[in-house]
Design a protein around this nucleic acid. Sequence first.
RNA 1: GGUGCGGUAGCCAAGUGGUAAGGCCGAGCUCUGCAAAAGCUCUAUUCGGCGGUUCGAUUCCGCCCCGCACCUCCA
Length: 474
Amino acid sequence: MAIRLFDSLTRSPQELRRPDPANPQDFFTFYNCGPTVYAPAHIGNFRTFTVNDVLRRLLELEYGPDKVKHVRNLTDVDDRTIGQAKKEQRPLADITRHWTQIFHEDCRALNLLPPHAEPTATGYIKEQVNMIEVLMQKGCAYRAADGSVYFKIASFPGYGGLSRIKERELKVTNTVADADHKDSVSDFALWKAYKPEEDGLVSWAGPDGAAAGRPGWHIECSAMSKAILGDTIDLHSGGIDLLFPHHENEIAQSQCCNGTTFSRHWYHSEHLLVNGTTMSKSKGNYYTVRDLIAQGHSPLAIRYALLAGHPRKQLNFTLESLHAAESALKKLQVIVTVFHDPKYRVAGNGTPSRLTEVLDLLRDDLNTPGALGALFKLGHEISCGIGGGPTNADVATLDQILGVLGLEATQLAAANAAPKADAPDEVKALAAKRWAAKVAKDFAAADALRKELTAVGWSMLDAKDSYKLEPLKK
RNA sequence: GGUGCGGUAGCCAAGUGGUAAGGCCGAGCUCUGCAAAAGCUCUAUUCGGCGGUUCGAUUCCGCCCCGCACCUCCA
């Protein structure tokens, strides 16, 4: 079956376009709104990036690894990045470089593939300025009294098509401090005139007829998408919160500038919640990947936990769900090991693998929890001997599925073999004594020593000819 | 006020117009001296509530209750 994704524009599942395999210039083009690099991304941000990573892997599996172009930007100039630079009294580039590096480390930990291009807003100032100039020439944008440039929503009749928001229904907020510069409260900034007290050293020459300053937020995605992927792309994705105003504004800018469809398909993933509400620093429910890793959680378990709910449904993340993910990962590894063990292999007769239905669940709107469930069910059936052992086709399909989920066999093995804390010498000594007692079949002494080990918080796991020590779970 | 998403077992979470996947936790069993690991079995007469359509609804429609989110620079 073809890949179908829910489309925010038509509000229905739509088949994605398959690039022409015969045309080497035809790619599936995919733009995913990335993070703002002023602080560590939290796991809510990473839910979106992980979902998009699964999508990207699925596209490459279906269309071929060289037929997909995946772009994810870095927002490295905006109110928050500038604010952070000002707060720390450091150059903007220092701040964004630092957090970009942290972001990349977190991405690697979560086994996210790097996008094919990762443009930054500051790297595409010229393209943004050009675009704004075109919009001004076309009468879709105007210069305000302070030298800023605003997009004129009235010039784009299709405005609100994505979010279904009508201008008159907008709640009037007081966050629009510069409303007096605009023709209409709904108009949004394409270019923001330099404000010495706020912007510090951050400023570029503006579009013709405008003041020096910096780009507004929305224009960067339009400009970078156009520059790298072209006027019309196949898919644009991001978190649900970006649907309005960000994506609505991108459509308006791009379509007015380019005179053609901006993106054929729009996909939005839902929010990750923590204890029932969205994450925010003020609520103190702000998990980062590095914090969780520092607490001893495996990054792959974080990835699993993020994929354990349907991407278009809010998912409640708790430490408990992370523990569940860790246990599930162990179980998954056992299943994978059985699949890969030649001794269970059964001759295939060329019929489609039973696992293709699991792949179909992923093709159908990225149903990751459904696919995971089906995978466990099959693992269970195979261990019970139902339907016979896996065929070569089954094993190949399993590897494809794991590859799409980013839970490859090697990753699973590494995660589950995560180094445990090394035992102190006295614990090691106790363990050695107990092992000796056991080998001597002095079970009373062995049991007493096990109790001693338990008392100091360690558990001894006997294998046939060896043992290992693990800290007791509380 | 506008818009959107959702309410399925102790927790998490799929799903379908034909009678409830899966994961976690828990219990029992098997296997191991013990312990752990692993495996097996069990755990929703029921899908927020009330009506309606239907031979049949958790699944479609209506109303109500509850939760979450967005509404101009939050993934």
